[in-house]
Computed example of a mutant assay.
Amino acid sequence: MAAKVALVTGASSGIGEAAARHLRDAGFTVYAAARRVDRMAQLRAVGIHTIALDVTDDDSARVAVEQILAEQGRIDVLVNNAGYGSYGALEDVPLTEAQAQLDVNVLGLARMTRLVTPHLRAQRSGRIVNISSMGGNFTTPLGAWYHASKYAVEAISDALRMELAPFGIDVVVVQPGSIRSEWGAIAAAKVLETSGDGPYREQAAAVANALGNSSRPDARLTSSPAVVARAIVRAATARRPRTRYRIGFGAKPLVLAHRILPARVFDLLIQRAVGGGA
């Protein structure tokens, strides 16, 4: 039987790149997609297909899916991984930037799902794996729009799981904790750009430091993207996958703490952890 086909968005670095490699090692025919194809040369060198994809653009998304179907005749797994972290005080973040955050993290996920779902329904099988975050369960200072996007991913995934179950399609959420990747450095730069001056500057400096530290190769209190990639493979291959895989440093204890602690106590815990207190 021909290998199953997986499409991974946001595959030029971090979790997406690791997921593409691990899915290939698990026997999938893998299409790694990102806006910058040149950054995926190493994936192409090991036999992974690389394609250009901007999840915020209708034509780009449609062309990418059509290419895979033309070349392989099927798609079995969609890993909705494309995303970034937009940080800054709500007062400071332009609504155009808020819209951009939702366009990538939420509407981009929905766009790819809408394109792939008809083919999964026709097959009466398939997996949609949505990469959320432990930050889809609780919030941190200066991260309102990022967390709003991940809360939305959680809700969309729950609705999709029920909608698509009658067609043999599983919907799975992966909730990474603190992961070593360039994501943290990008988010740190964003918070300093947005709130590095003005009334939130002390919070911004502290939050940027916490975010930036997670990108360092020697960062403690973080996990490798490979940890998340292995969970994605389990989600894609298990006969009956879990609805959620909570994986990586801090994910399980922090989500549990948020569930059982009074809100103000949890606020204090987070403010001390990331330096976001007054």
Rank of each mutant, 00 (worst) to 15 (best):
M1F: 06
A2S: 13
A2T: 13
A11G: 02
S12Q: 06
G16L: 13
G16K: 09
L23G: 10
V30L: 05
R36N: 13
M40P: 06
M40Q: 06
L43H: 07
A45T: 05
T50H: 11
I51T: 13
A52R: 00
D57W: 05
D58V: 03
S60L: 05
V63F: 02
V65S: 06
V65K: 01
I75R: 04
V77I: 11
V79S: 06
S86V: 14
V93W: 02
L95G: 07
L102V: 14
L102I: 15
L102D: 00
D103C: 07
N105Y: 15
L107C: 04
A110T: 12
T113F: 13
L115H: 11
V116W: 04
T117V: 13
T117P: 10
P118G: 02
L120M: 12
L120W: 01
R121A: 02
R124P: 03
I128L: 12
I128M: 11
G136S: 08
G136A: 11
F138G: 04
T140A: 12
P141W: 00
A144F: 11
W145M: 09
H147E: 09
K150V: 15
Y151K: 05
A152L: 14
E154P: 07
L160G: 09
L160V: 09
R161L: 09
E163T: 10
A165W: 08
D170N: 11
V171M: 07
V172W: 07
V172A: 06
V173M: 09
P176N: 10
G177V: 11
I179H: 07
S181P: 04
I186G: 14
A187D: 08
A187R: 08
L192A: 10
T194V: 12
S195D: 11
A204W: 01
G212C: 03
N213W: 10
S215N: 11
S215R: 03
A219N: 01
L221E: 03
S223K: 12
P225I: 13
A226V: 14
A235K: 13
T243G: 06
T243W: 08
T243L: 10
A251K: 08
V255Y: 00
A257S: 09
A257D: 00
A257N: 02
H258N: 13
R259A: 15
I260Y: 02
R264T: 14
V265E: 00
F266S: 01
R272K: 15
G277Y: 12
